[in-house]
Amino acid sequence: TGIVNVSSSLNVRSSASTSSKVIGSLSGNTKVTIVGEEGAFYKIEYKGSHGYVAKEYI
């Protein structure tokens, strides 16, 4: 489990790349469930599926 550490919002992406499609966003202080790691990204549970967020903001 981690907490989103941004002042505005954090993009949730379809894969572990900054060039991948943005599938949603999370507000600061949102609790997320981390299910894996891939490079500079965490794989998280997101809306019944999975998404990826940059580690530096969790």
Rank of each mutant, 00 (worst) to 15 (best):
G39A: 07
S7G: 12
I58A: 02
N29P: 07
I44R: 00
S14L: 14
K55P: 01
V4D: 03
S20P: 02
S14F: 11
E56V: 10
Y57E: 08
G24Y: 04
R13K: 08
S19L: 11
E38V: 09
V32P: 02
Y57N: 09
T30F: 07
E37D: 08
S15F: 08
S8L: 10
S19T: 13
S7T: 13
I3Y: 13
S25A: 13
N11I: 15
L10T: 12
S20R: 02
F41D: 04
I58R: 01
V35N: 04
G51I: 01
S17I: 06
V22S: 07
G24T: 02
S27D: 12
G28T: 12
A54F: 12
S9M: 12
S49F: 10
K43M: 11
I58M: 05
E45T: 08
Y42A: 03
I44L: 02
A40G: 12
A16H: 06
T18E: 14
I44T: 01
E37T: 08
I3T: 10
E56Q: 12
K21F: 08
S17L: 07
V6G: 11
G48N: 09
G36N: 06
V22R: 05
V6D: 06
A54D: 11
K21V: 12
S7V: 12
I34R: 01
I44D: 01
G51E: 01
G39Y: 05
V12R: 00
I34D: 00
K55F: 03
G2T: 07
Y46V: 03
V53F: 01
I3N: 06
N5G: 06
S49Y: 10
S20E: 03
S9V: 10
A54S: 11
A54Q: 15
S8C: 14
I23M: 08
T1L: 12
R13I: 06
T18P: 15
G24P: 00
Y52N: 00
G39Q: 05
S27M: 14
E38G: 03
N29A: 10
S49N: 10
E56F: 08
A16F: 04
G2K: 06
N11H: 15
K21N: 13
T33W: 10
I23R: 02
S49I: 13
K21R: 13
T30C: 09
Y52F: 12
K31E: 11
S8G: 15
N29G: 15
V22N: 05
G36V: 03
E45S: 07
K43R: 10
G36M: 05
G36F: 04
K43Y: 07
I58E: 02
S19Q: 13
T30Y: 06
K47T: 05
E45R: 08
G36Q: 05
A40P: 14
E38W: 08
I58T: 03
S27K: 15
L26D: 00
K31V: 15
S7E: 11
V4M: 05
Y46E: 01
T1K: 10
G39N: 08
K47W: 07
S20N: 03
L26E: 01
Y52K: 00
S49K: 11
Y42T: 02
Y57C: 13
E45C: 11
N5Q: 09
V32K: 00
N5H: 10
S7A: 13
N29Q: 12
F41G: 00
V4S: 06
I34Q: 00
S17C: 08
K31Q: 12
A54R: 13
S15R: 12
I3A: 05
G36T: 04
E37K: 06
K55A: 05
V4K: 04
E45D: 08
S49R: 12
R13C: 09
E45L: 14
V53W: 00
Y57P: 03
A40S: 11
Y52E: 00
S25L: 13
G36A: 08
G36I: 03
T1V: 15
T1P: 09
Y42H: 03
N29C: 13
A54L: 15
S20H: 05
G2Y: 04
S20I: 02
K47F: 11
V53K: 00
V6H: 12
A16P: 15
G2S: 06
A54K: 10
E56I: 13
S49H: 10
S20Y: 06
V35A: 05
K31A: 10
V32W: 02
V6Y: 05
T18S: 14
V35P: 00
L10F: 04
G36D: 08
A40Y: 09
L10K: 03
E37L: 07
T30I: 08
S49Q: 13
S19K: 12
Y42L: 07
G48R: 05
I23A: 02
I23L: 10
G2R: 07
V12P: 00
S17Q: 08
E38K: 07
K31Y: 13
S14N: 09
I34M: 03
S9H: 15
V22W: 05
I34V: 06
F41C: 04
I58L: 07
T33M: 10
R13T: 11
S7P: 11
E45A: 09
K31F: 13
I3H: 09
T30N: 06
N11S: 12
I23T: 03
H50R: 04
N11G: 09
S25M: 15
S14G: 08
S15Y: 07
V35L: 15
T30K: 06
T1C: 14
S20C: 05
A54T: 07
G51W: 02
H50W: 15
E56C: 11
N29T: 08
S49V: 14
Y42C: 04
S20G: 15
K31T: 13
S9A: 12
F41P: 00
L26I: 11
K43F: 06
G39F: 05
E56P: 05
Y52P: 00
T33G: 04
I3S: 06
G2H: 07
K55I: 06
E38N: 08
E56M: 11
K43D: 03
S14D: 13
I58Y: 03
S7Y: 05
E38L: 08
S27T: 12
G36K: 07
S8V: 13
F41K: 01
V32N: 01
A16G: 06
N11L: 15
S25E: 11
T30Q: 12
V32G: 00
N5I: 14
S17A: 08
L10V: 15
R13E: 03
K31N: 09
L10W: 03
I3K: 08
V22C: 07
S9F: 12
R13L: 15
H50I: 15
S8E: 13
S7C: 14
I23E: 02
V4F: 04
Y57H: 12
T18R: 12
S19H: 13
V6I: 14
G48W: 05
S17W: 04
S14Q: 14
E56Y: 09
T18Q: 13
S15L: 09
S49E: 11
V53E: 00
S14P: 03
T33S: 09
I58P: 01
Y42Q: 02
K55C: 04
H50F: 15
I34S: 00
S20V: 03
N29D: 08
V22Y: 05
T18H: 15
G28Y: 14
N29I: 06
G36R: 04
Y52C: 03
A54Y: 14
T33P: 03
V35W: 07
G2L: 07
G51D: 00
G48M: 06
S19G: 12
H50S: 07
I23W: 03
I34W: 05
S8R: 11
K43W: 06
S25V: 15
T18I: 15
H50L: 11
Y42M: 04
S8W: 12
S20Q: 02
I44Y: 00
V53R: 00
S17N: 12
G2F: 05
L26M: 06
V4Q: 04
S17R: 07
S17P: 01
S9K: 12
F41H: 04
Y52I: 01
V53L: 04
G48Q: 07
G39I: 03
V53A: 04
V35K: 06
Y42R: 01
G2A: 08
A16K: 03
G48D: 09
S17M: 07
V6R: 09
K55N: 03
I34K: 01
E45W: 09
T30L: 07
N29L: 11
G2N: 06
S8F: 11
N5F: 05
S7D: 12
V6F: 06
I23K: 04
E38Y: 09
T30D: 11
V35D: 03
Y46A: 01
